[in-house]
């Protein structure tokens, strides 16, 4: 489970897959993001922590333009997401996203969930999409659940189907928005296990979560956000053991108390 037991990380700070600069986001009078810069390298796992309302989920959602930044620049895999000429639907295939509430399509089977975008966006035939979809479900350990509806799956299984739905499109980066927060404690492990496998396959990942154990083991970098800015960033050890900023220290001691 320790970091040093995993395979050696090649080039953890290589070419940037995600480059966000000067991101501001206003919701009416509310200034949620106040000039955030974030770069994510190939094979890098960036972990974002912070109190609720700190803007961490909003930042994540700006990275695939589910949220439109008020100003700033977001480049993912060399594509400027905020350029009016960018085909956002095409760009989003390269950016997988996993949500707190799974958001599986309840009227489709697990395989149907995974193959919809393969067929409608990536333009695969039904047979090719089914094959890729089954492979993606196998990667999250759910090959035998392909024909099940979300309502027939546990929360952990639903979230793994949601991960399969995203990775089937072969994204360059995966965004996780509190992927385990809606899960019963005994189901968290299976989802984190899939995320760890994904991380070891070299997928660049940005994870907003409160799973500090996972952050210690798997993250290359931890960002602490508060009130719309990145207050502090560093290795998991630096942020969790010896944070410099007072706000970081207060937050870390609070979450480690329980």
């Amino acid at each position: 489970m320790r970091l040093d037991e995993g395979p050696p990380r090649q080039n953890p700070r290589g070419n940037a897959i995600v480059e966000a600069r000067g991101i501001h986001k206003h919701f009416g009078a509310l200034h949620v993001l106040k000039g955030v810069d974030l770069a994510v390298a190939e094979r890098e796992l960036v972990f974002i922590i912070g109190p609720s309302g700190s803007g961490k989920s909003t930042l994540l959602r700006c990275l695939n333009r589910l949220e439109e930044p008020t100003s700033g620049k977001v480049v993912v895999d060399g594509v400027d997401l905020l350029d009016a000429r960018t085909d956002i639907n095409h760009a989003r295939q390269r950016i997988g996203m996993v949500f707190q509430s799974f958001n599986l399509y309840p009227h489709m089977t697990a395989l149907g969930n995974v193959t919809l975008a393969l067929r409608k966006v990536a333009g695969k035939s039904r047979a090719a999409a089914d094959e890729l979809g089954r492979a993606a479900l196998a990667r999250v350990g759910l090959a035998d659940r392909a024909g099940h509806r979300p309502g027939e799956l546990s929360g952990g299984q639903q979230q793994r189907v949601a991960i399969a739905r995203a990775i089937a499109l072969e994204p360059r980066v995966m965004l996780f928005d509190e992927p385990t927060s809606a899960l019963d404690p005994e189901l968290v492990g299976s989802v984190l296990g899939v995320m760890r496998d994904l991380r070891e396959s070299g997928m660049a990942m940005v994870v907003v979560s409160h799973e500090m154990g996972f952050a210690r083991n798997a993250a290359d970098r931890v960002l602490f956000m508060d009130q719309g800015v990145i207050v502090e960033e560093g290795t998991p050890a630096a942020i969790f053991e010896s944070p410099i900023q007072q706000r970081t220290r207060a937050f870390i001691s609070q979450i480690q108390r329980h």
Binding site: N64, L66, N89, H90, A91, R92, Q93, I95, G96, M97, F99, S101, N103, L104, Y105, L116, A117, K120, V121, A122, A162, R165, A166, L169
Partner: peptide, 17 residues
């Protein structure tokens, strides 16, 4: 739910799709 829209759009499906 809004999450259905967001999940679908995040995989690259258009508004109409």
């Amino acid at each position: 739910a809004k999450g259905q829209w967001e999940a679908a759009r995040s995989t690259g499906l258009s508004y109409g799709q």
